[in-house]
Design a protein around this nucleic acid. Structure first.
Lengths: 336, 336
DNA sequence: TTTATTTTCGGAAACGATTGCGAATCTTTT
DNA sequence: AAAAGATTCGCAATCGTTTCCGAAAATAAA
């Protein structure tokens, strides 16, 4: 069907090995035949069969990106960064969506075991409370780099943001703008980012001598309708908060929807701030105050880190823990 | 390094071929040895080397998705749909971003030539005005399905929305809400969707006896800052429009930004409607009237169509032209 | 019991590339 | 002119599977 190295060799009256070497610029081949070979290859539009190469070389030139979901600005931006680096390195990128389901994550980890990829970039699902599938993958020799939703119990490189500080800053911002009762919308009980952001929230409360209340720490689910119901109950209950710190963009959106329905005015009756990478936060009604993560940069760094392993297999990889800064962008939703 | 079929065979005192057949449930193998083999495979956590299989079977179990950009709600949703079907079929998904650059598209087409994927899903870059790279790919036997940004001059399946009707409906909506001078923000001079939406726009103008004006058909670029400048000039020029129909979400965002800067009130001074898949259109200030495409469904349909080819290679594939309906959602930005 | 048939398995050739090793040919040195 | 070295290339093994083909063992038919 498609032209292979054997055809090239026949047309050129050369051996297969010579053609192969010529194509990859081996020193053993004379300049003149290199040119002949390359011209013929171009003429016949030859492209090496990637699977034959990968099989022989034990290298696939592809990486996998495993993320919870793609309809999420943070992850879209991260993929953009990852893909940028991958293109630079002439690598291919496989994408896997767990939809916050640990079973899918386990399944993917299995698929990636036998050389399909040279490395994996992963952001954990909200449901993963066990890392055996990833440990196994790692032990098979597949380098793993975590980004954003990392895993502390595995020795790997992690690219994150300063989630504690972000949580602290967000909460402090609400306090400084007059909030007395601040609720925290928690993303998941397992996620590192979730607990770190919460720690920041709690630390800020402590600093300003505000007591923490169990009823203001709200655990959310993976279902938007459910979340809106939860928030709705929070906002109509007896001890309403006057400020909300959402640990994820979709939770802030849910707040906006609920407030619209309940005719609660933001920021007059309720101030809202959220971790978010929504590029049009400023166009919302009201504009949304955010803690914004450098998502694109995170993707680039994670990919860069992975390629560092791939390029020097020999040395024991030095795991790195890169922490990027997120920034507070105050807008209308937290105005006094 | 990793466990292969040979090890399995040795441990089981069976031949390689028997193990292989047992694993894929060949009728030639007795039930008892099948069980033995599978148990051993599970115990050793065996996963077949995908590249060896692909090389031998001429099938990669992976598809490629080539899109202009990923930080775009339409494409994120489409990928979501594609990935859903791919998971169902146990396929892997490679992703390639052209960033609206035809050279990259050409490069990817080259990479996909030699069996790396069993098929390709593609939405053209705004810059592609020549389809030789895709024709070549197709002639090499790689099935291609276009979605949204399709290519008329190649015989392939196309999944689109009713872009003409969408353009017509959007424009009519503006007219019915009192607009007298409607500008059209064009995405690209090469894209089929762009010209069809424009045809719809022109047809609506004609129906309501409004004359078309060259100066109101605005060609935009791939640079947001540039686009804002272009729109800014449009809105401060001598013959300002009182309505804008944006053929893409990012152009509507640009409008909002410009209006904010120029203190132009939407919808009082200017009404805006746009093709968009922004899930929070209703939370914008003002809420944005949209023509919304069934992006997730488009992705699913495109993938489904591709798998139809893959599953019955023998029959000459019947190319299909599936056109899904987009819907007008009137909101604040076009209120009278 | 012999022959025919079915069941079950192993040997070995692919798939398309890469690469160690040996062997020509050509150039240089003595 | 002969030996040594450098240059350039081909043979064949290899990567881990799948699958064609043949053969042994078990079963059925004669």
């Amino acid at each position: 069907m498609s032209v292979n190295i054997k055809m090239l060799a026949e047309r050129l009256n050369l051996s297969i090995s010579t053609v192969s070497r010529a194509l990859r610029d081996s020193y053993e081949i004379s300049e003149s035949t290199k040119i002949r070979v390359k011209e013929m290859a171009a003429a016949l539009n030859y492209h090496a069969n990637p699977y034959a190469s990968s099989l022989r070389k034990h290298r696939s030139k592809t990486i996998a990106v495993v993320i919870p979901e793609i309809t999420n600005n943070f992850f879209s931006l991260a993929i953009n960064g990852i893909e940028y680096i991958a293109q630079e390195k002439n690598y291919h990128v496989l994408i896997y969506l767990t939809h916050e389901d640990i079973q899918k994550e386990i399944g993917f980890a299995g698929h990636l075991q036998n050389g399909r990829v040279d490395g994996v970039l992963i952001s954990l699902s909200a449901a993963t409370d066990n890392y055996d599938h990833l440990r196994e993958l790692k032990e098979k020799g597949v380098p793993i780099v975590f980004f954003d939703r990392v895993c502390d119990s595995l020795e790997c490189s992690n690219i994150t943001t300063d989630d504690f500080e972000g949580g602290f800053t967000a909460t402090e911002h609400l306090i400084q703008n007059g909030c007395k009762r601040i609720a925290y919308l928690d993303l998941s009980k397992h996620l590192s980012i979730s607990s770190k952001r919460k720690q920041g929230y709690l630390a800020a409360l402590k600093k300003y001598n505000m007591k923490e209340e169990e009823s203001l720490i709200i655990r959310t689910t993976n279902n938007n309708a459910e979340n809106e119901e939860i928030i709705s109950q929070l906002l109509t209950g007896p001890h309403k908060p006057d400020g909300i710190f959402a640990s994820a963009e979709k939770l802030a959106i849910a707040c906006y929807n609920v407030c619209e329905r309940l005719k609660i005015n933001i920021p007059r009756q309720l101030k809202v701030i959220s971790f978010s990478n929504l590029e049009i936060s400023s166009l919302l009604n009201p504009s949304l105050s955010t803690i914004t993560q450098p998502a694109y940069e995170i993707g680039k760094q994670a990919a860069t880190q992975l390629f560092r392993y791939l390029e020097k297999k020999s040395v024991t990889p030095a795991y790195e823990n890169i922490i990027l800064k997120s920034t507070l962008i105050p807008r209308g939703s937290t105005k006094k």
